[in-house]
Simulated scan of single mutants.
Amino acid sequence: MKRSGPLFTLLAGLALALVLLAVNAMTGTVTAPAGGKVTPTPSASPSPSPSKSAPPTSAAPSESPSRAPDADYAGRTDDDSSAIAVTVRDGKAIAYFCDGRDRESWLKGPVDGDGSMALTGKGGARLDAAVRGDKLTGEAIVDKKTYAFTADRAKKPSGLYRATQTVRGARLDGGWIVLPGGEQVGILTRDGVREPAPEIDPDSGSVTGEDLTARPVTP
Rank of each mutant, 00 (worst) to 15 (best):
residue 161 Y to H: 06
residue 121 G to V: 07
residue 88 V to D: 13
residue 44 A to L: 15
residue 119 L to F: 14
residue 83 A to P: 04
residue 31 T to V: 14
residue 108 K to M: 05
residue 57 T to E: 10
residue 142 V to D: 09
residue 209 G to F: 10
residue 87 T to V: 15
residue 147 Y to I: 08
residue 167 V to G: 02
residue 28 G to Q: 15
residue 195 E to C: 02
residue 28 G to K: 15
residue 106 W to G: 02
residue 35 G to C: 03
residue 26 M to A: 07
residue 87 T to M: 07
residue 132 R to H: 08
residue 212 L to D: 03
residue 206 S to C: 03
residue 86 V to S: 10
residue 3 R to H: 02
residue 155 K to Q: 08
residue 165 Q to D: 06
residue 64 S to C: 00
residue 16 L to K: 03
residue 32 A to D: 09
residue 204 S to H: 06
residue 101 R to T: 13
residue 43 S to I: 12
residue 127 L to N: 04
residue 131 V to Q: 14
residue 77 T to Y: 04
residue 48 P to A: 15
residue 23 V to P: 00
residue 40 P to C: 05
residue 61 P to E: 02
residue 159 G to N: 05
residue 121 G to A: 04
residue 118 A to Y: 09
residue 44 A to W: 15
residue 112 D to T: 09
residue 185 V to E: 00
residue 208 T to A: 14
residue 172 L to Q: 05
residue 206 S to T: 15
residue 81 S to V: 13
residue 173 D to M: 02
residue 161 Y to S: 07
residue 62 S to N: 01
residue 10 L to V: 11
residue 16 L to P: 03
residue 162 R to M: 11
residue 65 P to V: 12
residue 15 A to L: 14
residue 110 P to A: 01
residue 104 E to T: 08
residue 61 P to M: 04
residue 211 D to K: 07
residue 6 P to V: 09
residue 95 A to F: 09
residue 155 K to G: 05
residue 89 R to K: 13
residue 120 T to F: 12
residue 107 L to G: 06
residue 163 A to K: 01
residue 58 S to D: 08
residue 137 T to H: 02
residue 157 P to V: 09
residue 67 R to I: 06
residue 40 P to T: 11
residue 197 A to L: 03
residue 97 F to H: 06
residue 158 S to L: 13
residue 72 D to A: 10
residue 90 D to H: 04
residue 18 L to F: 14
residue 186 G to I: 01
residue 167 V to M: 03
residue 63 E to C: 01
residue 102 D to F: 05
residue 65 P to A: 14
residue 204 S to E: 11
residue 60 A to P: 04
residue 126 R to E: 15
residue 64 S to K: 06
residue 65 P to R: 13
residue 183 E to G: 02
residue 124 G to K: 13
residue 85 A to D: 09
residue 195 E to Q: 10
residue 27 T to E: 10
residue 198 P to A: 08
residue 108 K to F: 04
residue 45 S to G: 10
